[in-house]
Design a protein around this nucleic acid. Structure first.
Lengths: 254, 254
DNA sequence: CCAAAAGTGTTATGTCTACACCCATGA
DNA sequence: TCATGGGTGTAGACATAACACTTTTGG
Protein backbone atom coordinates (compact mmCIF):
# COMPACT_ATOMS: atom_id res chain seq x y z
CA UNK A 1 0.00 0.00 0.00
CA UNK A 2 3.00 2.27 0.10
CA UNK A 3 3.49 1.73 -3.59
CA UNK A 4 1.04 4.50 -4.20
CA UNK A 5 2.56 7.43 -5.99
CA UNK A 6 -0.14 9.99 -5.46
CA UNK A 7 -0.30 12.36 -2.49
CA UNK A 8 -1.75 10.67 0.54
CA UNK A 9 -5.32 11.61 1.19
CA UNK A 10 -5.99 12.92 -2.24
CA UNK A 11 -8.67 10.79 -3.90
CA UNK A 12 -7.13 11.20 -7.28
CA UNK A 13 -4.14 13.47 -7.47
CA UNK A 14 -4.22 13.36 -11.21
CA UNK A 15 -2.94 15.57 -13.93
CA UNK A 16 -5.90 16.43 -16.14
CA UNK A 17 -3.75 16.21 -19.23
CA UNK A 18 -2.65 12.61 -18.75
CA UNK A 19 -5.18 9.91 -18.02
CA UNK A 20 -6.33 6.72 -19.73
CA UNK A 21 -9.09 7.55 -22.20
CA UNK A 22 -12.23 5.44 -22.48
CA UNK A 23 -15.29 5.49 -24.63
CA UNK A 24 -18.42 5.55 -22.49
CA UNK A 25 -21.61 4.05 -23.85
CA UNK A 26 -25.09 3.57 -22.45
CA UNK A 27 -27.00 0.35 -23.10
CA UNK A 28 -30.71 0.01 -22.44
CA UNK A 29 -32.35 -3.33 -21.73
CA UNK A 30 -35.94 -2.78 -22.83
CA UNK A 31 -38.35 -5.20 -21.18
CA UNK A 32 -42.03 -5.88 -21.60
CA UNK A 33 -44.51 -8.68 -21.07
CA UNK A 34 -46.05 -10.36 -24.06
CA UNK A 35 -47.87 -13.64 -24.28
CA UNK A 36 -47.43 -14.14 -20.56
CA UNK A 37 -43.65 -14.09 -20.89
CA UNK A 38 -40.98 -11.55 -20.09
CA UNK A 39 -39.46 -10.29 -23.34
CA UNK A 40 -36.52 -8.11 -24.26
CA UNK A 41 -36.01 -5.84 -27.25
CA UNK A 42 -32.85 -6.80 -29.11
CA UNK A 43 -31.31 -5.51 -32.33
CA UNK A 44 -29.45 -7.52 -34.89
CA UNK A 45 -25.97 -6.24 -35.62
CA UNK A 46 -25.24 -5.32 -39.21
CA UNK A 47 -21.50 -4.80 -38.92
CA UNK A 48 -18.53 -6.56 -37.35
CA UNK A 49 -17.65 -7.41 -34.71
CA UNK A 50 -20.34 -9.91 -33.78
CA UNK A 51 -22.04 -9.27 -37.11
CA UNK A 52 -25.55 -10.75 -37.40
CA UNK A 53 -25.70 -11.47 -33.68
CA UNK A 54 -28.33 -9.98 -31.39
CA UNK A 55 -27.37 -7.13 -29.09
CA UNK A 56 -28.81 -4.78 -26.50
CA UNK A 57 -29.45 -1.35 -28.02
CA UNK A 58 -27.14 1.43 -26.90
CA UNK A 59 -24.84 4.23 -27.94
CA UNK A 60 -22.27 6.77 -26.89
CA UNK A 61 -22.71 9.10 -24.00
CA UNK A 62 -22.21 12.67 -25.13
CA UNK A 63 -20.01 14.93 -23.01
CA UNK A 64 -22.79 17.47 -22.44
CA UNK A 65 -25.49 15.07 -21.27
CA UNK A 66 -25.92 13.08 -18.08
CA UNK A 67 -25.97 9.29 -18.11
CA UNK A 68 -29.71 9.34 -17.43
CA UNK A 69 -30.28 11.69 -20.35
CA UNK A 70 -28.21 9.48 -22.62
CA UNK A 71 -30.29 6.47 -21.61
CA UNK A 72 -33.51 8.37 -22.19
CA UNK A 73 -32.28 9.42 -25.60
CA UNK A 74 -31.34 5.87 -26.56
CA UNK A 75 -34.70 4.57 -25.40
CA UNK A 76 -36.51 7.19 -27.48
CA UNK A 77 -34.40 6.40 -30.52
CA UNK A 78 -35.20 2.71 -30.30
CA UNK A 79 -38.86 2.79 -29.35
CA UNK A 80 -40.28 6.26 -29.86
CA UNK A 81 -41.24 6.21 -26.19
CA UNK A 82 -40.13 9.49 -24.71
CA UNK A 83 -41.75 9.97 -21.34
CA UNK A 84 -43.08 8.09 -18.40
CA UNK A 85 -41.43 4.75 -18.89
CA UNK A 86 -39.42 3.48 -15.95
CA UNK A 87 -35.71 3.78 -16.61
CA UNK A 88 -33.22 2.53 -14.03
CA UNK A 89 -29.45 2.26 -14.01
CA UNK A 90 -28.30 -1.11 -12.73
CA UNK A 91 -24.65 -1.65 -13.62
CA UNK A 92 -21.43 -0.64 -15.31
CA UNK A 93 -19.30 -2.97 -17.39
CA UNK A 94 -15.70 -2.30 -18.22
CA UNK A 95 -13.77 -5.51 -18.63
CA UNK A 96 -10.75 -5.01 -20.87
CA UNK A 97 -11.46 -6.52 -24.24
CA UNK A 98 -15.24 -6.55 -23.89
CA UNK A 99 -15.17 -4.56 -27.11
CA UNK A 100 -12.32 -5.81 -29.33
CA UNK A 101 -11.87 -2.44 -30.97
CA UNK A 102 -11.16 -0.19 -28.00
CA UNK A 103 -11.59 0.50 -24.31
CA UNK A 104 -15.30 0.90 -23.69
CA UNK A 105 -17.04 1.26 -20.38
CA UNK A 106 -20.78 0.87 -20.70
CA UNK A 107 -23.38 1.95 -18.20
CA UNK A 108 -26.45 -0.25 -18.36
CA UNK A 109 -30.08 0.70 -17.79
CA UNK A 110 -33.29 -1.22 -17.99
CA UNK A 111 -36.59 0.21 -19.18
CA UNK A 112 -40.02 -1.25 -18.55
CA UNK A 113 -42.65 -0.80 -21.24
CA UNK A 114 -46.35 -1.47 -21.09
CA UNK A 115 -47.21 -2.06 -24.69
CA UNK A 116 -45.70 -3.91 -27.58
CA UNK A 117 -47.32 -2.05 -30.46
CA UNK A 118 -44.83 0.11 -32.29
CA UNK A 119 -41.95 -0.81 -30.06
CA UNK A 120 -39.63 -1.10 -32.99
CA UNK A 121 -40.93 2.14 -34.47
CA UNK A 122 -37.56 3.85 -34.39
CA UNK A 123 -35.69 1.05 -35.98
CA UNK A 124 -35.72 -1.11 -39.05
CA UNK A 125 -38.37 -3.71 -38.26
CA UNK A 126 -36.23 -6.51 -39.63
CA UNK A 127 -33.34 -5.59 -37.37
CA UNK A 128 -35.18 -5.27 -34.05
CA UNK A 129 -37.34 -7.85 -32.30
CA UNK A 130 -38.88 -8.84 -29.02
CA UNK A 131 -37.21 -11.99 -27.78
CA UNK A 132 -38.34 -14.04 -24.77
CA UNK A 133 -35.81 -13.49 -22.02
CA UNK A 134 -35.57 -17.20 -21.36
CA UNK A 135 -34.51 -17.83 -24.96
CA UNK A 136 -31.87 -15.12 -24.78
CA UNK A 137 -30.46 -16.46 -21.55
CA UNK A 138 -30.37 -20.20 -22.09
CA UNK A 139 -28.10 -19.92 -25.11
CA UNK A 140 -30.74 -20.40 -27.78
CA UNK A 141 -29.91 -16.89 -28.92
CA UNK A 142 -26.30 -15.86 -28.81
CA UNK A 143 -25.70 -12.28 -27.76
CA UNK A 144 -22.87 -9.98 -28.84
CA UNK A 145 -20.16 -8.61 -26.54
CA UNK A 146 -20.88 -9.31 -22.84
CA UNK A 147 -24.57 -8.63 -23.41
CA UNK A 148 -25.66 -12.01 -22.05
CA UNK A 149 -24.23 -11.06 -18.70
CA UNK A 150 -25.77 -7.60 -18.87
CA UNK A 151 -29.17 -9.08 -19.65
CA UNK A 152 -28.86 -11.61 -16.84
CA UNK A 153 -28.03 -8.83 -14.41
CA UNK A 154 -30.93 -6.72 -15.67
CA UNK A 155 -33.46 -9.50 -15.20
CA UNK A 156 -32.13 -10.31 -11.76
CA UNK A 157 -32.43 -6.66 -10.78
CA UNK A 158 -35.97 -6.46 -12.13
CA UNK A 159 -36.93 -9.50 -10.09
CA UNK A 160 -35.66 -7.81 -6.95
CA UNK A 161 -37.14 -4.42 -7.76
CA UNK A 162 -40.54 -5.91 -8.46
CA UNK A 163 -40.63 -6.84 -4.80
CA UNK A 164 -39.21 -3.58 -3.53
CA UNK A 165 -40.75 -0.95 -5.78
CA UNK A 166 -43.97 -0.29 -7.64
CA UNK A 167 -42.37 -1.33 -10.90
CA UNK A 168 -45.19 -3.76 -11.61
CA UNK A 169 -47.53 -1.01 -12.80
CA UNK A 170 -45.01 0.09 -15.41
CA UNK A 171 -45.65 -3.22 -17.18
CA UNK A 172 -49.40 -2.62 -17.48
CA UNK A 173 -51.39 0.19 -19.03
CA UNK A 174 -53.09 3.03 -17.20
CA UNK A 175 -56.18 0.85 -16.85
CA UNK A 176 -55.70 -2.80 -16.08
CA UNK A 177 -57.36 -5.87 -14.64
CA UNK A 178 -56.02 -7.65 -11.60
CA UNK A 179 -55.32 -10.66 -13.80
CA UNK A 180 -53.03 -8.54 -15.96
CA UNK A 181 -51.26 -7.25 -12.88
CA UNK A 182 -50.93 -10.75 -11.53
CA UNK A 183 -49.50 -11.91 -14.86
CA UNK A 184 -46.66 -9.41 -14.42
CA UNK A 185 -45.55 -10.89 -11.13
CA UNK A 186 -46.02 -14.41 -12.43
CA UNK A 187 -44.01 -13.83 -15.60
CA UNK A 188 -41.11 -12.06 -13.92
CA UNK A 189 -40.87 -14.35 -10.90
CA UNK A 190 -41.99 -17.53 -12.68
CA UNK A 191 -44.41 -18.38 -9.90
CA UNK A 192 -48.12 -19.03 -9.74
CA UNK A 193 -50.33 -16.99 -7.43
CA UNK A 194 -53.72 -17.92 -6.10
CA UNK A 195 -55.94 -15.38 -7.84
CA UNK A 196 -58.16 -14.99 -4.79
CA UNK A 197 -55.32 -14.26 -2.41
CA UNK A 198 -53.59 -12.01 -4.89
CA UNK A 199 -56.73 -9.94 -5.22
CA UNK A 200 -57.06 -9.64 -1.46
CA UNK A 201 -53.46 -8.51 -1.03
CA UNK A 202 -53.91 -5.75 -3.57
CA UNK A 203 -57.44 -4.69 -2.69
CA UNK A 204 -57.46 -4.86 1.08
CA UNK A 205 -55.23 -1.93 1.80
CA UNK A 206 -56.13 1.39 0.24
CA UNK A 207 -53.96 3.21 -2.27
CA UNK A 208 -52.74 0.42 -4.47
CA UNK A 209 -55.49 -0.02 -7.04
CA UNK A 210 -58.52 2.19 -7.58
CA UNK A 211 -61.61 0.76 -9.32
CA UNK A 212 -62.68 2.73 -12.35
CA UNK A 213 -66.21 1.32 -12.48
CA UNK A 214 -65.58 0.07 -16.00
CA UNK A 215 -65.06 -3.52 -16.96
CA UNK A 216 -62.81 -5.28 -19.43
CA UNK A 217 -64.13 -7.42 -22.27
CA UNK A 218 -64.01 -11.11 -21.41
CA UNK A 219 -61.91 -13.26 -23.69
CA UNK A 220 -63.51 -15.23 -26.49
CA UNK A 221 -63.86 -18.21 -24.18
CA UNK A 222 -66.17 -16.33 -21.81
CA UNK A 223 -65.79 -15.60 -18.16
CA UNK A 224 -67.00 -12.88 -15.90
CA UNK A 225 -65.82 -9.47 -17.11
CA UNK A 226 -63.09 -8.13 -14.83
CA UNK A 227 -63.14 -4.74 -13.17
CA UNK A 228 -60.66 -2.24 -14.61
CA UNK A 229 -58.42 -0.51 -12.10
CA UNK A 230 -55.95 2.34 -12.18
CA UNK A 231 -52.82 2.63 -10.07
CA UNK A 232 -53.01 4.35 -6.68
CA UNK A 233 -50.36 6.45 -5.02
CA UNK A 234 -49.00 3.64 -2.85
CA UNK A 235 -47.01 2.21 -5.74
CA UNK A 236 -44.53 4.99 -5.14
CA UNK A 237 -43.64 3.33 -1.86
CA UNK A 238 -43.37 -0.32 -2.81
CA UNK A 239 -45.45 -3.31 -3.77
CA UNK A 240 -48.31 -5.05 -1.98
CA UNK A 241 -47.10 -8.40 -3.29
CA UNK A 242 -44.19 -10.28 -1.78
CA UNK A 243 -41.93 -12.62 -3.69
CA UNK A 244 -41.86 -15.45 -1.18
CA UNK A 245 -45.20 -17.05 -1.99
CA UNK A 246 -44.98 -20.63 -3.24
CA UNK A 247 -45.23 -21.56 -6.89
CA UNK A 248 -47.87 -24.18 -7.25
CA UNK A 249 -47.73 -25.92 -3.91
CA UNK A 250 -50.99 -27.29 -2.67
CA UNK A 251 -52.07 -28.29 0.79
CA UNK A 252 -51.37 -32.00 0.47
CA UNK A 253 -47.78 -31.70 -0.72
CA UNK A 254 -44.98 -32.31 1.70
CA UNK B 1 -36.58 9.12 -33.57
CA UNK B 2 -35.81 9.36 -37.23
CA UNK B 3 -33.16 11.89 -36.41
CA UNK B 4 -30.78 9.07 -35.80
CA UNK B 5 -27.85 9.05 -38.13
CA UNK B 6 -26.50 5.61 -37.43
CA UNK B 7 -27.50 2.50 -39.33
CA UNK B 8 -30.77 1.12 -38.05
CA UNK B 9 -30.39 -1.88 -35.84
CA UNK B 10 -26.76 -1.33 -35.08
CA UNK B 11 -26.38 -0.67 -31.38
CA UNK B 12 -23.56 1.74 -31.93
CA UNK B 13 -22.46 2.18 -35.48
CA UNK B 14 -19.41 4.00 -34.36
CA UNK B 15 -16.06 4.66 -35.87
CA UNK B 16 -13.44 3.51 -33.36
CA UNK B 17 -11.24 6.44 -34.23
CA UNK B 18 -13.74 9.14 -33.36
CA UNK B 19 -15.64 9.07 -30.11
CA UNK B 20 -15.93 11.33 -27.08
CA UNK B 21 -13.17 10.50 -24.60
CA UNK B 22 -13.78 10.21 -20.88
CA UNK B 23 -11.70 9.56 -17.85
CA UNK B 24 -13.09 6.63 -15.88
CA UNK B 25 -12.51 6.47 -12.14
CA UNK B 26 -13.57 4.07 -9.43
CA UNK B 27 -14.70 5.38 -6.04
CA UNK B 28 -15.02 3.13 -3.01
CA UNK B 29 -17.36 3.97 -0.13
CA UNK B 30 -15.78 2.14 2.79
CA UNK B 31 -18.26 1.45 5.58
CA UNK B 32 -17.94 0.01 9.03
CA UNK B 33 -19.72 0.10 12.35
CA UNK B 34 -18.09 1.82 15.25
CA UNK B 35 -19.60 2.99 18.46
CA UNK B 36 -22.97 1.63 17.41
CA UNK B 37 -23.03 3.93 14.40
CA UNK B 38 -22.50 3.42 10.71
CA UNK B 39 -19.29 5.17 9.68
CA UNK B 40 -17.59 5.95 6.39
CA UNK B 41 -13.90 6.34 5.58
CA UNK B 42 -13.26 9.72 3.99
CA UNK B 43 -10.06 11.43 2.90
CA UNK B 44 -9.32 15.12 3.08
CA UNK B 45 -8.36 16.66 -0.22
CA UNK B 46 -4.96 18.35 -0.35
CA UNK B 47 -5.30 20.03 -3.72
CA UNK B 48 -7.89 22.04 -5.65
CA UNK B 49 -10.61 21.70 -6.62
CA UNK B 50 -12.53 21.26 -3.37
CA UNK B 51 -9.27 21.60 -1.45
CA UNK B 52 -9.52 20.71 2.25
CA UNK B 53 -12.95 19.14 1.78
CA UNK B 54 -13.69 15.51 2.53
CA UNK B 55 -14.04 13.04 -0.31
CA UNK B 56 -14.65 9.38 -1.03
CA UNK B 57 -11.38 7.61 -1.89
CA UNK B 58 -10.94 6.59 -5.49
CA UNK B 59 -8.74 6.64 -8.54
CA UNK B 60 -8.42 5.92 -12.23
CA UNK B 61 -9.41 2.69 -13.83
CA UNK B 62 -6.49 1.27 -15.78
CA UNK B 63 -7.17 -0.02 -19.27
CA UNK B 64 -5.90 -3.52 -18.50
CA UNK B 65 -7.96 -4.12 -15.35
CA UNK B 66 -11.65 -4.75 -14.79
CA UNK B 67 -13.77 -2.34 -12.80
CA UNK B 68 -13.93 -4.85 -9.95
CA UNK B 69 -10.16 -5.17 -9.94
CA UNK B 70 -9.76 -1.40 -9.90
CA UNK B 71 -12.09 -1.18 -6.91
CA UNK B 72 -10.19 -3.93 -5.11
CA UNK B 73 -6.94 -2.13 -5.78
CA UNK B 74 -8.28 1.17 -4.47
CA UNK B 75 -9.62 -0.53 -1.35
CA UNK B 76 -6.26 -2.14 -0.70
CA UNK B 77 -4.45 1.14 -1.21
CA UNK B 78 -6.64 2.91 1.30
CA UNK B 79 -6.97 0.27 3.97
CA UNK B 80 -4.45 -2.48 3.46
CA UNK B 81 -7.36 -4.88 3.34
CA UNK B 82 -6.85 -7.13 0.38
CA UNK B 83 -9.15 -10.08 0.59
CA UNK B 84 -12.49 -11.17 1.84
CA UNK B 85 -14.15 -7.84 2.35
CA UNK B 86 -17.47 -7.41 0.59
CA UNK B 87 -17.14 -5.13 -2.41
CA UNK B 88 -20.21 -4.25 -4.46
CA UNK B 89 -20.75 -1.95 -7.39
CA UNK B 90 -23.84 0.19 -6.91
CA UNK B 91 -23.79 3.08 -9.37
CA UNK B 92 -22.16 5.15 -12.09
CA UNK B 93 -22.00 8.92 -12.08
CA UNK B 94 -21.31 10.98 -15.16
CA UNK B 95 -23.02 14.34 -14.95
CA UNK B 96 -21.21 16.89 -17.09
CA UNK B 97 -19.25 19.20 -14.86
CA UNK B 98 -19.16 16.87 -11.86
CA UNK B 99 -15.42 17.33 -12.10
CA UNK B 100 -14.63 20.90 -13.18
CA UNK B 101 -11.42 19.86 -14.90
CA UNK B 102 -12.61 17.30 -17.40
CA UNK B 103 -15.18 14.69 -18.37
CA UNK B 104 -15.09 12.01 -15.71
CA UNK B 105 -17.41 9.06 -15.33
CA UNK B 106 -16.99 7.35 -12.00
CA UNK B 107 -18.14 3.87 -11.09
CA UNK B 108 -18.95 3.63 -7.40
CA UNK B 109 -18.49 0.64 -5.09
CA UNK B 110 -19.09 0.15 -1.43
CA UNK B 111 -16.98 -2.03 0.82
CA UNK B 112 -17.98 -3.38 4.20
CA UNK B 113 -15.27 -3.76 6.81
CA UNK B 114 -15.39 -5.52 10.12
CA UNK B 115 -12.74 -3.76 12.08
CA UNK B 116 -11.61 -0.25 12.60
CA UNK B 117 -8.04 -0.88 13.70
CA UNK B 118 -5.54 0.14 11.05
CA UNK B 119 -8.15 1.22 8.58
CA UNK B 120 -6.14 4.26 7.64
CA UNK B 121 -2.98 2.21 7.37
CA UNK B 122 -2.43 2.99 3.73
CA UNK B 123 -2.91 6.69 4.03
CA UNK B 124 -1.63 9.63 5.94
CA UNK B 125 -3.47 9.35 9.24
CA UNK B 126 -4.20 13.06 9.32
CA UNK B 127 -5.84 12.95 5.92
CA UNK B 128 -8.15 9.97 6.39
CA UNK B 129 -10.82 9.48 9.03
CA UNK B 130 -13.90 7.52 9.93
CA UNK B 131 -16.89 9.85 9.90
CA UNK B 132 -20.39 8.95 11.09
CA UNK B 133 -22.56 8.61 8.01
CA UNK B 134 -25.25 10.77 9.57
CA UNK B 135 -22.79 13.65 9.97
CA UNK B 136 -21.64 13.33 6.38
CA UNK B 137 -25.20 13.31 5.07
CA UNK B 138 -26.90 16.04 7.08
CA UNK B 139 -24.52 18.73 5.89
CA UNK B 140 -22.33 18.89 8.97
CA UNK B 141 -19.49 17.73 6.77
CA UNK B 142 -19.36 19.07 3.26
CA UNK B 143 -18.22 16.59 0.63
CA UNK B 144 -16.32 17.30 -2.57
CA UNK B 145 -17.70 16.77 -6.09
CA UNK B 146 -21.03 14.90 -6.09
CA UNK B 147 -19.80 12.66 -3.30
CA UNK B 148 -22.71 13.50 -1.01
CA UNK B 149 -25.06 11.95 -3.55
CA UNK B 150 -22.78 8.97 -4.03
CA UNK B 151 -22.64 8.38 -0.28
CA UNK B 152 -26.41 8.71 0.03
CA UNK B 153 -26.90 6.16 -2.71
CA UNK B 154 -24.37 3.80 -1.12
CA UNK B 155 -26.09 3.88 2.25
CA UNK B 156 -29.49 3.37 0.68
CA UNK B 157 -28.15 0.39 -1.20
CA UNK B 158 -26.59 -1.07 1.92
CA UNK B 159 -29.90 -0.75 3.75
CA UNK B 160 -31.61 -2.72 1.00
CA UNK B 161 -28.86 -5.30 0.65
CA UNK B 162 -28.80 -5.94 4.38
CA UNK B 163 -32.30 -7.31 3.96
CA UNK B 164 -31.58 -9.23 0.77
CA UNK B 165 -28.09 -10.59 1.26
CA UNK B 166 -25.87 -11.89 4.00
CA UNK B 167 -23.98 -8.62 4.11
CA UNK B 168 -24.51 -8.33 7.86
CA UNK B 169 -21.74 -10.80 8.66
CA UNK B 170 -19.24 -8.70 6.73
CA UNK B 171 -19.63 -6.05 9.43
CA UNK B 172 -18.65 -8.42 12.23
CA UNK B 173 -15.58 -10.56 12.82
CA UNK B 174 -15.29 -14.28 12.24
CA UNK B 175 -16.51 -14.85 15.78
CA UNK B 176 -19.26 -12.64 17.10
CA UNK B 177 -22.01 -12.41 19.67
CA UNK B 178 -25.62 -12.07 18.68
CA UNK B 179 -25.64 -8.61 20.26
CA UNK B 180 -22.90 -7.53 17.85
CA UNK B 181 -24.84 -8.93 14.93
CA UNK B 182 -27.98 -7.21 16.12
CA UNK B 183 -26.10 -3.93 16.43
CA UNK B 184 -25.31 -4.13 12.71
CA UNK B 185 -28.95 -4.25 11.72
CA UNK B 186 -29.87 -1.61 14.26
CA UNK B 187 -27.15 0.82 13.15
CA UNK B 188 -27.82 0.47 9.44
CA UNK B 189 -31.60 0.50 9.64
CA UNK B 190 -31.87 2.79 12.67
CA UNK B 191 -34.37 0.52 14.33
CA UNK B 192 -34.46 -1.30 17.64
CA UNK B 193 -34.94 -5.03 17.77
CA UNK B 194 -36.21 -7.08 20.68
CA UNK B 195 -33.12 -9.04 21.62
CA UNK B 196 -35.16 -12.15 22.42
CA UNK B 197 -36.96 -12.21 19.09
CA UNK B 198 -33.81 -11.37 17.17
CA UNK B 199 -32.06 -14.32 18.74
CA UNK B 200 -34.92 -16.63 17.87
CA UNK B 201 -34.99 -15.53 14.24
CA UNK B 202 -31.30 -16.23 13.86
CA UNK B 203 -31.06 -19.37 15.96
CA UNK B 204 -34.23 -21.23 15.05
CA UNK B 205 -33.35 -22.20 11.54
CA UNK B 206 -30.09 -24.01 10.96
CA UNK B 207 -27.24 -22.64 8.92
CA UNK B 208 -27.17 -19.01 9.96
CA UNK B 209 -25.05 -19.00 13.09
CA UNK B 210 -23.06 -21.85 14.58
CA UNK B 211 -22.15 -21.81 18.27
CA UNK B 212 -18.45 -22.11 18.93
CA UNK B 213 -18.80 -23.15 22.56
CA UNK B 214 -16.70 -20.19 23.61
CA UNK B 215 -17.99 -17.11 25.33
CA UNK B 216 -17.21 -13.42 25.03
CA UNK B 217 -15.95 -11.34 27.93
CA UNK B 218 -18.76 -9.37 29.55
CA UNK B 219 -18.36 -5.60 29.51
CA UNK B 220 -16.99 -3.80 32.51
CA UNK B 221 -20.50 -3.33 33.80
CA UNK B 222 -21.14 -7.04 34.09
CA UNK B 223 -23.78 -9.19 32.49
CA UNK B 224 -23.96 -12.82 31.46
CA UNK B 225 -21.15 -13.68 29.05
CA UNK B 226 -22.55 -14.14 25.55
CA UNK B 227 -21.98 -17.18 23.37
CA UNK B 228 -19.63 -16.62 20.44
CA UNK B 229 -20.91 -17.74 17.07
CA UNK B 230 -19.48 -18.09 13.62
CA UNK B 231 -21.34 -17.59 10.35
CA UNK B 232 -23.10 -20.54 8.72
CA UNK B 233 -23.50 -21.21 5.03
CA UNK B 234 -27.01 -19.77 4.81
CA UNK B 235 -25.67 -16.21 4.69
CA UNK B 236 -24.84 -16.87 1.08
CA UNK B 237 -28.54 -17.03 0.36
CA UNK B 238 -29.91 -14.05 2.27
CA UNK B 239 -30.61 -12.84 5.75
CA UNK B 240 -32.77 -14.30 8.51
CA UNK B 241 -33.75 -10.79 9.61
CA UNK B 242 -36.35 -8.72 7.84
CA UNK B 243 -36.40 -4.97 7.74
CA UNK B 244 -40.07 -4.45 8.48
CA UNK B 245 -39.98 -4.94 12.22
CA UNK B 246 -41.05 -1.92 14.26
CA UNK B 247 -38.58 0.40 15.92
CA UNK B 248 -39.65 0.73 19.48
CA UNK B 249 -43.36 0.11 19.31
CA UNK B 250 -44.87 -1.44 22.40
CA UNK B 251 -48.11 -3.29 22.81
CA UNK B 252 -50.14 -0.34 24.07
CA UNK B 253 -49.31 2.04 21.21
CA UNK B 254 -51.83 2.72 18.50
C1' DC C 1 -76.54 -25.92 -20.29
C1' DC C 2 -71.34 -26.04 -19.83
C1' DA C 3 -66.79 -24.14 -19.47
C1' DA C 4 -64.16 -20.37 -18.03
C1' DA C 5 -62.74 -16.59 -15.55
C1' DA C 6 -63.90 -13.08 -11.79
C1' DG C 7 -64.76 -12.48 -7.28
C1' DT C 8 -66.21 -13.84 -2.02
C1' DG C 9 -66.01 -16.50 2.31
C1' DT C 10 -63.86 -19.43 5.56
C1' DT C 11 -60.52 -21.90 8.15
C1' DA C 12 -56.25 -24.10 9.69
C1' DT C 13 -51.71 -23.01 10.19
C1' DG C 14 -47.85 -20.38 10.85
C1' DT C 15 -45.26 -16.18 12.16
C1' DC C 16 -44.44 -12.03 14.87
C1' DT C 17 -44.57 -9.11 18.98
C1' DA C 18 -44.42 -7.95 23.43
C1' DC C 19 -43.16 -8.99 27.69
C1' DA C 20 -42.50 -11.96 31.90
C1' DC C 21 -39.04 -14.42 33.83
C1' DC C 22 -34.55 -16.86 34.78
C1' DC C 23 -29.20 -16.97 34.48
C1' DA C 24 -24.37 -15.46 34.99
C1' DT C 25 -21.38 -11.96 35.63
C1' DG C 26 -18.69 -7.37 37.60
C1' DA C 27 -18.64 -4.09 41.05
C1' DT D 1 -26.78 -8.02 46.51
C1' DC D 2 -27.65 -5.08 42.88
C1' DA D 3 -27.38 -3.63 38.15
C1' DT D 4 -26.56 -5.30 33.62
C1' DG D 5 -26.95 -7.86 29.74
C1' DG D 6 -27.62 -12.89 27.97
C1' DG D 7 -31.03 -16.22 27.18
C1' DT D 8 -35.93 -18.94 27.49
C1' DG D 9 -41.03 -19.30 27.56
C1' DT D 10 -45.43 -18.04 26.03
C1' DA D 11 -50.01 -15.97 24.83
C1' DG D 12 -52.40 -13.01 21.79
C1' DA D 13 -52.47 -10.59 17.41
C1' DC D 14 -51.88 -10.95 12.86
C1' DA D 15 -50.83 -12.81 8.17
C1' DT D 16 -50.99 -16.52 4.85
C1' DA D 17 -52.30 -20.48 1.92
C1' DA D 18 -55.62 -23.40 0.40
C1' DC D 19 -59.80 -24.15 -1.45
C1' DA D 20 -65.00 -24.30 -1.53
C1' DC D 21 -68.33 -21.56 -3.37
C1' DT D 22 -70.96 -17.87 -6.04
C1' DT D 23 -71.31 -14.71 -10.12
C1' DT D 24 -71.25 -13.50 -14.94
C1' DT D 25 -69.97 -14.06 -19.25
C1' DG D 26 -69.35 -16.74 -24.37
C1' DG D 27 -70.58 -20.60 -27.01
Amino acid sequence: MTTKTKDPGVPAGYDPSQFPAFAVTVDVVILTISGGRLQVLLVRRGVPPFEAMWAIPGGFKRPAETLDEAAKRELAEETGVSGASLLTQFGAYGDPGRDPRMNVVTVAYFAVLREVGGIAAGTDAAAAALIPVSDALNGKIELAFDHAKILRDAVERVRVDLDLTGMAIAFVGSKFTLAELRAVYEAVWKVGFDAANFRRSVITEQGWVIPTGRRAQPGSTGGKPAELYRAGRMWRYGSPIRRSQPNGRRKGDS
